[in-house]
């Protein structure tokens, strides 16, 4: 599996660290809604197909990348810096607090 880092170019997956589901948005820090926090900390999407994920180029430039990967074929269809893509979260995200 190859991921094309916007800085470094196409690199083998062994240079990257998986940093989890990229569909999550951290709740308002002042929020005390336990359901919302529980969803953020513990719930992860696990689709068969396209998935929005965060990968860190830990063996390279160390940037976190927002990666769209097909979990069935490992085809990576888009890569961008997580800090730029931070606000474009997937529509497929469950309502916070809803049961999986």
């Amino acid at each position: 599996m190859l991921i094309t880092c916007p800085y470094c170019g196409p690199r083998d997956v062994s240079e990257y660290t998986y940093q989890g589901d990229g569909n999550r948005t951290r709740p308002d820090p002042a929020s005390t809604d336990q359901e919302v926090w529980n969803a953020y900390v513990y719930d992860r999407l696990n689709p068969a197909g396209e998935h929005h994920e965060i990968w860190q180029h830990s063996g390279g430039c160390r940037a976190h990348l927002a990666v769209t990967r097909n979990t069935l074929t490992h085809v990576v269809s888009s890569v961008s810096f997580a800090r730029d893509a931070g606000h474009k979260k997937s529509d497929s995200r469950r309502k916070t607090g809803a049961k999986a």
Partner: peptide
């Protein structure tokens, strides 16, 4: 280090 980098890149860019 990784924890802090994640927060700066993903949570609080």
């Amino acid at each position: 280090m990784q924890h802090l980098e994640y927060l700066l890149d993903v949570v609080w860019p």
